[in-house]
Design a binder for these strands. Structure first.
Lengths: 197, 197
DNA sequence: CCGTAAATGTTAGTCACTAACATTTCAATC
DNA sequence: GATTGAAATGTTAGTGACTAACATTTACGG
């Protein structure tokens, strides 16, 4: 059955069913094609044909072409972690501390699919823009959290935007390197955001 | 005569000529329509028709619809100012100091067109994404500058992305308020990025 | 075997954007 | 003042992402 989560993404409640299989097949075919000939030179029609499916069916599984690569399931973890930080900190420091705490609770991405996606995004300007757009929802959550605890709205927004952009930059950087743990890259990024490097 | 600048933008070397007039007319018509009925519900064909011109002509003046709202002519000033900062600072601090110095050399936007554009962008998610994409060029310049002076590439990229995202957030914030000078908003944002607020 | 709903297919459209080629405008020169 | 050449605009025909409305197939429980 088709379920729309709070980020606007579409998730299959029954990953083993027919719908889940078609979705996975489309994703696999798409990533292969993107890696072989680039994101922009790959058409949705081509992806659908490779998966043995209609273009219309593609759009029933992915709201847009870029959703094959960009998604963001981490929002609630981040928001909760930021909320748990001391309210006396300045917005930037608090956002950084919150993200540092949040990251400890996230799993190191084991599947290569994550890395493939990020790698493709890193090489494709419009996809990097899509990631920024995607960060907007998380940013709003962060801002609300900071403001609810007395931060100046302007400062809160600046801090949230800066921290998320920094983390995103680190993520893109990580995808280009081999043998480095995502945790380490993110940790270093948070150090930088605290002015410690 | 048509000139392409280093940011990929198209500039008229003779603003008083026919080409310059058509461009200004298209821009005016577009901003009016955007404010009246929203960016996304306004088609390029509609803009062109309002300006008494063909759709094709529109694309000869603006490479894409979003270029009516998004542009970034400040890169060289920023890069030069960052280069002038002491090389002993941490990347984030240096980027902030550079931007603070750069901003002092920029004119307070006198034309209302700037504010109209930013206001429209603030209200339109895809345009906010376009601004981020547009920041990429500036970010690269910043990174090159920081790395050339011995900063770690990873830290440099994180710092550059964070600072630009913070400034952009401040700019969007400014467009929503009345009676506040852009300089003050940006200055406050830089304070936040330094962890001072 | 049957009925039903989920999943997919079909068709026809809109909108942003491109390419190739034809036409008009304008200004300098003759 | 007519001529010419380039800049500016027009025309036509297309591609690709995406949507809407409706038809058909697939799978699964009774």
């Amino acid at each position: 059955m088709l379920v729309t989560n709070i980020y606007g993404g579409v998730v299959d409640s029954e990953p083993g069913g027919r719908r889940g299989r078609t979705r996975m097949l489309l994703l696999e075919c798409a990533l292969d094609l993107f890696e072989r000939q680039g994101y922009e030179r790959t058409t949705v029609g081509q992806i659908a044909a490779t998966a043995g499916v209609t273009e219309m069916t593609f759009f029933r599984h992915f709201a847009a072409k870029d959703r094959l690569v960009v998604e963001d399931p981490y929002d609630p973890v981040i928001a909760g972690a930021v909320a748990a930080q001391p309210r006396t900190m300045a917005p930037l420091a608090r956002a950084v501390a919150g993200l540092r705490a949040a990251w400890g609770r996230l799993p190191e991405p084991e599947s290569t699919t994550v890395r493939r996606r990020v790698r493709i995004a890193a090489a494709t300007p419009p996809l990097r823009a899509a990631i920024s757009a995607n960060n907007a929802a998380t940013e709003q959550i962060l801002v609300d959290q900071l403001v609810a605890d007395g931060a100046d709205p302007g400062s809160a927004r600046v801090a949230a935007a800066a921290v998320l952009a920094g983390i995103t930059a680190a993520l893109l950087d990580w995808s280009q390197r081999d043998g480095v743990a995502l945790t380490d890259v993110v940790s270093a990024a948070l150090d930088t955001l605290e002015g410690r490097r």
